[in-house]
Simulated scan of single mutants.
Amino acid sequence: MPRPRKPARLYYRKDEQQWVIRDGNRMQRTEFGLREREEAEAALAEYLAHKAPEVRCGPAHPSELTLGEVLARYVDDKGEKIASTGTLIYSIQALAPFWADLTCDAVKGSTCSLYERERAKSRTTIVMTKTGKKIERTRAASPSTARRELGVLQASLNHAHSEGLLVHPIAVTLPPAGAPRDRWLSRDEVAALLRCAEPHVRHFILLSLYTGRRASAILELTWARVDFDAGKIRFRVDGQAETNKRRGSIRTPRQLLGHLRRWRGYKGTHVVSFRAKPIKSIKTGIRRAAERAGIDGVTPHVLKHTAITWAVMKGLSVEDAAEYFDTSPETIRKHYWHHSPHHQGRALEIIERRR
């Protein structure tokens, strides 16, 4: 019986002093040296992400199919259809070094726990700054990051089964979800943050506080989707498919409408722009403003959390909050309703009755 072909893997060539990707008879150089294992693993993940999946005649037993093939097939079929392609590629790059050489029958609770422990180890990588300078960066993945990556592995296995690559589905054991953070900003903190923020960051903060939308929805908002006559903002592009990260549309509060009218004189197609150009990420701008203001724990998501918390504190009902912020009623009840003056009001009224 012929030996099964090994999946693509890294191999260090001493004669060339670099890591190479060995895939059957094919060998591809990575141009990374012995101490650049992390970069070589990223190159392997990129290779697997763009590798065309093998054509199979029928479903395979889990012991006959490698997870590298499963991940490659998932990226090939779903990569262009997923809104957060960058996040998907990042997750594949993290999963590939550990899982790619293993077959699907290796997916068990013990191996998933081992993956979580491996990701929790601090790793040092060399990154290139915008000025061309190389710096070392040491970081470890949090349990929530490992959970998200294993979720991608689960989605890949589900896709493999639905496409007839696997004879039966395989369950991935996910780490327990962490407790939700209840960090929201006071009005004094917001005022200090706005005073210390640059103009484009200030625009983002105000949009986030009045709309409660995710950072990506705000940064991608163009003036063409701001209707001043009807007083509405459409966060979703016409024809764009709705995802779990819902965007929807809102009626514009009069305070925000006044800000938008003043900002309309700024150049650029996007409402939040820097030097008339769209912005991909606002995290650095938010962090610097928070540092200048002396406020800890401020992120774009905290601004969204603050917007919904303030609205619920003012007495907004679960249904109205869910509709305006385009968030499920279950999420409103779970994460925000305890801030409402109406929280457990009916129960308290009945319990306090004398008869």
Rank of each mutant, 00 (worst) to 15 (best):
Arg288Pro: 01
Ala276Cys: 06
Phe325Asn: 12
Arg262Met: 14
Arg247His: 02
Leu316Asp: 12
Arg251Leu: 08
Gly268Val: 03
Glu349Val: 14
Leu303Arg: 03
Pro300Lys: 00
Lys334Ile: 04
Val302Phe: 00
Leu260Met: 08
Val237Trp: 03
Ser328Cys: 11
Thr327Ser: 13
Ile233Ala: 09
Glu323Lys: 10
Trp310Lys: 02
Trp310Gln: 06
Val318Tyr: 11
Val272Ile: 10
Glu242Lys: 14
Phe228Lys: 11
Arg225Ser: 07
His305Gln: 14
Asp238Gln: 13
Lys267Leu: 08
Arg288Thr: 00
Ala290Gly: 03
Glu242Leu: 15
Ile279Thr: 04
Glu291Pro: 00
Val312Tyr: 08
Thr327Phe: 03
Gly315Gln: 11
Thr299Leu: 02
Ala307Asn: 12
Val312Arg: 08
Asp320Trp: 08
Phe274Arg: 14
Ile250Tyr: 15
Asp320Glu: 13
Lys304His: 03
Pro278Arg: 13
Ser317Pro: 04
Tyr336Phe: 06
Ile295Arg: 00
Ile250Gly: 05
Arg254Asp: 05
Ile295Val: 02
Ile351Ala: 14
Gly258Ile: 04
Glu330Tyr: 10
Tyr336Trp: 08
Pro253Thr: 02
Ser340Lys: 12
Ile282His: 04
Ala322Asp: 14
His301Ser: 04
Ala347Ser: 05
Arg292Gln: 00
Ser249Trp: 15
Ala293Gln: 02
Arg288Ile: 00
Arg288His: 03
Arg262Ala: 12
Glu349Phe: 09
His339Asp: 09
Arg264Ala: 08
Ala347Glu: 12
His339Lys: 11
Gln255Leu: 01
Glu349Ile: 06
